[in-house]
């Protein structure tokens, strides 16, 4: 009886300690995520008319989001671009992550640093770099013209594909790092065991390495997909006349029109779809474990 009571007391103290440790993070989330999200949600039910926002409760903004086909179109484009960026990033990132995790040996830290360094440069500058590289008078075109491979400058920028390339470049580290973390954790013995039991390289990869790296694949895909879906700057700088993405639409409502309630409703729907996606991914990869 006494011992049980003491155990309960200890458990309670442990829980209190855990709660105290979690408090800063919880507060941070509350102030910088939950509160803004609530304000967003609240504002999405306000009425906007004649450049004025009023407090009366209305579903009109949501009605518009779902009735105007342009929003669905932009949303579907955003999803398609994000999916493409995610798939391409996975294919590009996997060999890199695998190399760093399994083969790099003592160069591993150096390679990892090389991976992180681009983060020190602003995304704007990195995106502008593509303009310099791929522009009409850019480095690639200069090479093509000088070498006679092309007769006129090749147009590479300002198209959905340029947006995809730009996003892959910016988001690749978000794929490589979780993949690396997951590949690095795999016991090298499992790979040797598979080979010992008669599996060739391809079989070993398909049956052992890849399945064991799935948590990293899941996190990487999730990060890249969500970030690509919400990308704003890259489509604006590298996109063509018809490359609008959902964040650009939301931005216009806030910055140009001043119709914050409609922007809020768009953002809430966008957030909801992202959350559903995250939950779906979570479930998928939890089931794998």
């Amino acid at each position: 009886m006494n011992a049980a009571g003491a155990a309960i007391g200890t458990a309670r103290r442990e829980r209190a300690k855990a709660a105290a440790l979690l408090l800063p993070a919880a507060l941070w989330l509350l102030v910088f995520f939950a509160l803004p999200a609530f304000v967003l949600l609240d504002s999405s039910f306000d009425r906007y008319a004649d450049a004025k926002v009023s407090d009366d409760f209305t579903f009109a903004n949501y009605a518009r989001v779902f009735s105007e086909s342009v929003y669905l179109k932009v949303f579907l484009r955003s999803v398609a671009v994000a999916a493409l960026v995610t798939a391409a990033s996975l294919l590009l990132a996997y060999p890199v992550a695998h190399f760093i995790a399994r083969r790099a040996g003592k160069n591993r830290d150096l390679l990892f640093l090389a991976l992180i360094v681009p983060f020190w440069t602003s995304i704007v500058i990195r995106t502008y770099a593509w303009k310099i590289l791929l522009g009409t008078s850019g480095a690639v075109n200069y090479f093509l013209l000088q070498s006679g491979l092309a007769e006129a400058p090749v147009k590479m920028l300002f198209s959905p594909s340029a947006v995809v390339v730009g996003l892959i470049h910016v988001l690749l580290p978000f794929m490589i790092i979780p993949l690396y973390a997951s590949l690095e954790k795999i016991d090298p013995g499992t790979v040797e065991a598979a080979m010992d039991l008669g599996a060739g390289r391809v079989q070993t990869f398909l049956r052992i390495t890849f399945p064991l790296s799935l948590p990293g694949v899941g996190v990487g895909c999730l990060l890249v997909f969500i970030l690509a879906l919400g990308s704003f700057l890259t489509p604006q700088l590298l996109g063509g006349p018809g490359s609008l993405m959902i964040s650009n639409v939301i931005q216009t409502e806030y910055m140009e029109t001043g119709n914050w309630p409609l922007g809020g409703a768009l953002a809430v729907v966008f957030l909801a779809v992202s959350l559903v996606f995250v939950a779906g991914c979570n479930k998928l990869f939890k089931a794998e474990e």
Binding site: D187, G189, T190, A193, D196, R207, I208, P211, L214
Partner: peptide, 18 residues
Amino acid sequence: PFERPTNLVFQHLSLFPH
């Protein structure tokens, strides 16, 4: 390794956890 009539029980067992 897989062309030899040997098999190995690894130090850390290295079972396939999945």
